[in-house]
Simulated scan of single mutants.
Amino acid sequence: MKMIQMNKNVPASSAIGLGCMRLTGLENSKTVRELIDVSMEAGINFFDHADIYAGGEAEAEFGKVLTPKLRSQMVIQTKCAIRPGICYDFSKEHILKSVDGSLQRLNTEYIDILLLHRPDALMEPEEVAEAFSALKKAGKVRCFGVSNHNPMQMELLNSCLEEPLCVNQIQFSVAHCPTIDGGLNVNIHNDAGCNRDGSVIEYCRLKKMTIQAWSPFQYGMFEGVFIGNEKFPELNAVMNRLAKKYQVTPNAIAVAWIMRHPANIQTIVGSTSAKRVQDICKASDVCLTRDEWYEMYLSAGKLLP
């Protein structure tokens, strides 16, 4: 498994991480532990959570099977700031309270990485900095990042932080990559050329931030999975051919497409199938050619100007 060093205070992390949002869909704690064990045997040491996943129950299910030995072999990330149906909350009080809740549910003394889940329009960067500083000094969080943020939002936060943000988690797949579309259609008056995110990939590369890709098999905003979907016949034909060539599954090819990008993107996969996780991890051994990468991009319905 390819490894990524995201921050000096955090151990090297697997380039494929397990997203734990759906853990509550598993039968019992035994199957949760089996999924974790199989993932780690396949090379995964990175586990992604959020305080809102299943209302906190996903973290709790994970915490039920977490032992000191397992914890020492893991990098655990969680997210906070979404108050469902109410607001996004970057207040110091909410951040501190959220972390304490996650620590209790996860059954751990510290979180390796804490992300702010969605941008808060009422963000006070000085207040966020106070919260981060308090958490780090207390040994509760080792480093910090964000999710779904644009470059200027990150710049504003970094202007007050003691240490710069180390992660930005964004939705990214071959069928949903507007940041790639915008970069390829510079100075062209078309929809693809609309810069919707402020060149977030280039910004993160310049700042040495790790980009994490969520929903690597989805198209649109939760519209569905593109693998095996009749809406994407050309893309599936290409993925099936490449899967046969590299002797992996189409899911692994979809992840290999993400991993081929020089931004060193970490992919978060949310499968609860141990076999599927094993198959996806084989993407780490696949290096698509430049022609194959662009062929997949074009077969997803994209155009080069």
Rank of each mutant, 00 (worst) to 15 (best):
residue 2 K to H: 07
residue 5 Q to I: 07
residue 6 M to A: 11
residue 10 V to T: 12
residue 11 P to E: 07
residue 37 D to P: 01
residue 40 M to W: 05
residue 44 I to A: 08
residue 47 F to Y: 13
residue 49 H to I: 07
residue 49 H to N: 09
residue 49 H to S: 05
residue 51 D to V: 07
residue 54 A to W: 05
residue 55 G to A: 06
residue 56 G to S: 06
residue 60 A to I: 00
residue 60 A to M: 06
residue 60 A to F: 03
residue 65 V to L: 07
residue 66 L to R: 11
residue 80 C to F: 05
residue 80 C to V: 14
residue 85 G to W: 06
residue 88 Y to A: 01
residue 90 F to M: 06
residue 93 E to A: 14
residue 97 K to I: 00
residue 106 L to C: 03
residue 107 N to F: 05
residue 111 I to Y: 09
residue 113 I to C: 02
residue 124 E to S: 14
residue 124 E to Q: 14
residue 126 E to R: 10
residue 133 S to K: 10
residue 135 L to D: 04
residue 140 K to W: 07
residue 140 K to F: 09
residue 141 V to Y: 10
residue 142 R to W: 03
residue 145 G to M: 08
residue 154 M to C: 14
residue 156 L to M: 13
residue 160 C to V: 05
residue 161 L to H: 13
residue 167 V to H: 02
residue 169 Q to Y: 03
residue 171 Q to F: 08
residue 179 T to P: 01
residue 183 G to V: 02
residue 184 L to V: 10
residue 184 L to W: 09
residue 185 N to I: 04
residue 187 N to T: 06
residue 202 E to P: 06
residue 210 T to P: 01
residue 213 A to V: 12
residue 233 P to E: 06
residue 239 M to S: 06
residue 242 L to F: 01
residue 251 N to V: 00
residue 253 I to R: 00
residue 254 A to N: 01
residue 256 A to L: 06
residue 265 I to Y: 09
residue 275 K to L: 09
residue 278 Q to R: 13
residue 282 K to H: 11
residue 290 R to W: 09
residue 291 D to F: 00
residue 292 E to R: 02
residue 296 M to Y: 00
residue 296 M to V: 03
residue 299 S to R: 08
